[in-house]
């Protein structure tokens, strides 16, 4: 029992990182309807930007913030230069996916060419641990949980309490209608890509802090759990992605605690499939859509 309680704590920590990335992915998809597979490589890029900053003496958490903003900017440029023109030309969804896969592969190999294939690390972590009830979490894990909670709350407030958030939701819901209502959808799209890029960047550095050691495949390895979390919650639904991330994180850690750790990811994906069989639009799919329409 003790192991299971501990595993739930570890699962929240892992789930926080997955949720961070999944929410950004989901926001991106919600606003532009593009399944951006380059997201994984952008997370890797962020981890390496963080490495350069840390190697120059910058604190890891400051490096996380700077890398997040940098990847946010890169995401906007990437969307503006490559994806938006393809969408305007009527490129089909499957072709867009292939384009993002290709761009991600190119970016990954550019990173290898510059940084090399060897594993990297931000260095030895603080040995400080926190004990709460029967949970033991490291300083890094607690910080990432808190950071994720703050970012998720900020995103929630942005989406529900600000004009910008309403405009984002309106654009996400019906782009043409939003434009005819006077919303500058192109600018809103840029802002959404910047925010989601920032979340992607934050997730990249958070992941590098969590794994301690990483290489150029970092983002690609964790893209699948993140997409799974987004789909589990209902693709395009930020709250769903948060919940999906937590479910995948906790289920995989509990599985590792009570069974063969090799099956930790399998358990998470079995849950994903079962949920989708019961609720094809994901946990938040239908409910959120209705609420969003009402609020819009």
């Amino acid at each position: 029992m003790q192991l299971i309680i501990e595993a739930i704590g570890f699962g929240i920590a892992t789930g926080a990182v997955i949720a961070l990335g999944a929410v950004g992915f989901s926001v991106q998809f919600g606003i532009s309807n593009i399944l951006n597979i380059t997201y994984g490589a952008l997370m890797t890029l962020s981890a390496y930007i963080g490495l350069v900053l840390i190697n120059h003496g910058i604190n890891a958490w400051a490096a996380l913030a700077i890398s997040a903003v940098a990847v946010g900017a890169v995401s906007v440029i990437y969307h503006r230069i490559l994806l938006a023109p393809l969408v305007r030309r009527g490129t089909r969804a499957i072709a867009m996916i292939i384009v993002t896969v290709s761009a991600g592969t190119i970016l990954q190999y550019v990173i290898v060419a510059i940084a090399g294939p060897s594993s990297q690390s931000y260095g030895e972590q603080s040995g400080q641990t926190f004990h709460f009830l029967d949970l033991t979490l490291s300083f890094g894990q607690v910080t990432i949980i808190v950071l994720t909670a703050i970012l998720m709350l900020a995103l929630h407030l942005l989406l529900t309490r600000t004009t910008l958030g309403k405009a984002m939701r309106a654009t996400s819901s019906n782009r043409t209608l939003a434009r005819s209502c006077g919303i500058a959808t192109s600018r809103i799209s840029d802002i959404a890509w910047f925010i989601s890029g920032c979340l992607c960047g934050a997730a990249g550095v958070a992941l590098a802090i969590t794994t301690v050691s990483f290489d150029f495949s970092l983002g690609a390895l964790f893209l699948i759990p993140m997409i799974a979390a987004a789909v589990l919650g209902g693709i395009g639904q930020p709250y769903g992605a948060m919940l999906g991330g937590m479910i995948i994180g906790i289920s995989s850690e509990v599985a590792a605690a009570v069974s063969n750790p090799n099956y930790k990811d399998v358990v998470a994906f079995v849950i994903l499939i079962i949920v989708l069989l019961v609720r094809p639009r994901g946990l938040f799919g239908a409910a959120w859509s209705s609420r969003r329409l009402m609020e819009g």
Binding site: L3, A7, F10, A13, S213, E253, V254, A256
Partner: peptide
């Protein structure tokens, strides 16, 4: 599994076994 985001649960299991040493085989990362 290789290159997981976290091995905390696995680590907890090993710590509970109180080993004198680890017989280990895994990639650097």
């Amino acid at each position: 599994p290789a290159d997981a985001a976290s091995y905390s649960s696995e680590v907890a299991r090993v710590i509970n076994a109180h080993p004198d040493a680890l017989i280990w085989s895994a990639d650097p990362q």
